[in-house]
Design a protein around this nucleic acid. Structure first.
Lengths: 216, 216
DNA sequence: GCAACATGAGAATATCATTCTCTATACGAG
DNA sequence: CTCGTATAGAGAATGATATTCTCATGTTGC
């Protein structure tokens, strides 16, 4: 028996239903924005689009946009997180093709390196492009976006540890974090080197991360 | 004997003198802008200032600003390069206090790490702060700005190589570049970690760079 | 069909960087 | 000392965007 001070069950249910469909539509709208942004990015090969473009392309309104997102940065974050997550899945799948944990990690490093360099002919979203901006303005959220990739690297690193080949003074997660960051950032800046020096390769980065620069 | 078609010597000299003083004043004005910007940055502990603020603070005019700089980015670059150069000098001096090349490099890594983390109480300019922006818009110039620091690390790495402790499959310069980038970027993002995980330390980065994560 | 709520169109605002115009001034030449 | 020219200052105008706001128009559950 519901006392008079509580909402009647039917009303709760009604609200519930209402909420559900509303949420559904909202999700669809968010997705439309995301798709539009993605399309624009791959189309013009650059990550600097205007909110207006996204709105027009998705055939929605500015108002809607700002109802769904707290601002442009949230859209970027969403794209970034998405791309990174997708990439993590691909990499995980590819790594699974190897037997030795160390090889799995090597494959992961190489693939991450490739997908992190600026504009490998604009196929996979150049997600490192907007990361720098965001790193400045919303570092915490960027960390969240990195989460899926970090999870992958941590998994792989843990297997390496389990096979007894991780330095005893490193914890898998921390080693994974350092490796991931190193790979992503070196890839990023190795891109547009002047032709004078050939850019750093995935191989070099792998050697560096796994064995460092010092002998012994 | 100057023919009639050539400028008389006195005129050349006059122009020369004129140019010299003009250049001098110009340099002073540039410096005033730089100082003003620096002051604002340390004052508000953030690198996002407006051109107008810099102009007001330096008691000059917008017009002057754009006569001296091609745009805001040049000001940032100048500050960045300056800060990095200064830092390189300090680090070089500190490293000189060690005998073993490997120790010199270790000291350099530790210091670079410290000065690259976001806001260590905003004393030395947080120069990694605006690097990300610039990396996006003017990657080539950023590379130039890195030059002095890279030169330092290359020197140190060469001494390590000379003492026979650099992996034979690395060239000093490339190892130096990877190390520097790793240190700077890891420091940058190790900053505002959620209290959940304690941030990565200079020590860990040094171990990582010098020996990698793998045993043997 | 109605009331409450959601959405679209797009005008209004706000913030900056960058340019432009007009005026004042300093400096060397005579 | 006085003039002319190059230089500098004040600050308004412009332009690009993000963000917010208003109003009109659906939509949905009942």
């Amino acid at each position: 028996m519901t006392g008079p001070s509580e909402e009647p069950a039917w009303k709760q249910r009604a609200v519930e239903r209402s909420i559900r469909t509303a949420k559904l539509r909202a999700e669809q709208r968010v997705q439309r924005f995301l798709d539009a942004a993605q399309a624009i990015i791959t189309e013009k090969g650059s990550t600097d689009f205007t909110v207006q473009e996204v709105v027009d392309r998705s055939k929605q309104s500015l108002r809607s946009f700002y109802l769904q997102f707290d601002g442009k940065h949230e859209l970027l974050l969403a794209l970034f997180e998405d791309a990174l997550g997708r990439s993590a899945d691909q990499i995980r799948a590819a790594a699974a093709g190897e037997d030795d944990p160390m090889d799995q990690l090597r494959v992961a490093v190489e693939l991450l390196f490739e997908s992190s360099r600026p504009d490998p002919v604009a196929q996979r979203p150049l997600f490192t492009d907007f990361a720098p901006q965001l790193l400045l303005t919303h570092p915490a959220e960027v960390k969240v976006a990195h989460a899926s990739m970090l999870a992958l690297f941590t998994e792989l690193m843990e297997k390496v540890a389990a096979s007894g080949r991780l330095r005893s003074d490193f914890n898998a997660r921390r080693a994974a974090a350092m490796t991931m960051q190193t790979v992503m950032f070196i890839a990023q800046s190795s891109g547009d080197a002047d032709a004078t020096a050939r850019p750093i390769t995935a191989d070099e980065v792998w050697t560096f991360c796994s064995h460092g620069f010092a002998t012994k």
